[in-house]
Design a protein around this nucleic acid. Sequence first.
DNA 1: ATGACAACCTGTGGGC
DNA 2: TGCCCACAGGTTGTCA
Length: 269
Amino acid sequence: MPELPEVETTCRGIAPHIVKRRVVAMIIRESRLRWPIAAEVEDRLIGARFLGVRRRAKYILMDTDQGTLMVHLGMSGSLRIMSADAPALFHDHVDIVLDDHHCLRYHDPRRFGSMHWLKEMSHPLLDSLGPEPLAESFSGAYLYERSRRRRASVKQFIMDGKVVVGVGNIYANEALFLSGIHPKRASGRVSVARYEALVAAIKEVLAKAIAQGGTTLRDFVGGDGQPGYFAQQLRVYGRQGKPCRVCQTTLKEIRQGGRSTVYCPACQR
DNA sequence: ATGACAACCTGTGGGC
DNA sequence: TGCCCACAGGTTGTCA
């Protein structure tokens, strides 16, 4: 479920509850995530004290005095603060038990998420990631330069984590609509001016979604269990067959790289 | 280097 | 009502 705004919401939700807390136990009910949770994670985490929570792309980085716990939520993961004695439900794979009788509980039906231990600030999974979409350095000029001579569609281009991180399917659809760009247009044939508009739209839609606590489509909950409220502001995602909110043209759905794309054939060129 | 696609896994909703 | 297939917020790895 989580795209960047949902991951950011999770970081902000859990940080006040884990920072300064010490880990007294780790309960791993299911270690088979995208990659098996290494024994090292438990070995190093127990006894460690949390110092802060950061985000890089869709990875949650929980810094401790012993190193950093890196968690990815995959397609269906969530992290919540619970009472340590709250009964574990189906797919509650991991509890990180804190010294205040609470725990950080990882729930993930599809198990596409992951947990790693970082000793240094580098890790193969982080090394080839593109810039953060909300960073100053992410600009129309940057996208223009990176896209020259590329034939991939503009939608697949902005969803490529080596180009820019954190633009998932929902927000890619939304940003392309907001900037009036047809999702199938070749990325190498988009002007710098239109890339400026696209970057502005990406930043705007992500910032607004973060401000609303993310998008809850089905069951996303933030670190404190609250749903996100951005879904009601979606312009195109999930609205195929419905009228465009700007021009009333029926929104069209196509498939790109196995993912659904929804767009307005009149507004997007 | 780029791009197309399968793979990982479970749950759900639509069509028949 | 029930069954089966397609698809769901992500990313990596492989192969052409």
